[in-house]
Design a protein around this nucleic acid. Structure first.
Length: 103
DNA sequence: CCGTTGACTCTTT
DNA sequence: AAAAGAGCCAACG
């Protein structure tokens, strides 16, 4: 296991239930720009289902993908009271690691 | 070490 | 607004 992936899982676990985040947000929290690598790391996800990787979606709000089937991902999100409209998740469900805005 | 690939994101048409 | 192209970084052969 690479340290990079461990960080990804670490931040992924920090996402509260009923909320989602984007690959880029995680990458930003890690102080890296490898949002692609974040997705690749979650795809391998050896810690599943210990790590709630289903709460990580695209920055656009679309679900992206899921190793065990995208449909399953949607199901889990709905199970956490996350409303998915037209295959996308509303911005209000997005979780920010940096809750303090400086402006 | 170089090239390919992927659960991405941004910019331009 | 939707689609295509380019940029991006880590992992793997």
């Amino acid at each position: 296991m690479t340290p990079f992936q461990e960080k990804v899982y670490y931040y992924c676990k920090k996402v509260p239930k009923g909320k989602v985040t984007s690959y880029k947000e995680i990458a930003k929290a890690m102080k890296t720009k490898a949002y692609r690598a974040v997705g690749t790391a979650l795809n391998k996800n050896p810690y599943a289902p210990k790590v709630p990787c289903h709460r990580v979606i695209n920055h656009d709000g679309s679900l992206g993908g899921f190793a065990t089937g995208l449909k399953n991902k949607i199901k889990m999100l709905k199970d956490e009271r996350v409303i998915i409209t037209n295959g996308k998740i509303d911005r209000k469900y997005f979780f920010r690691f940096k809750q303090i805005n400086t402006f």
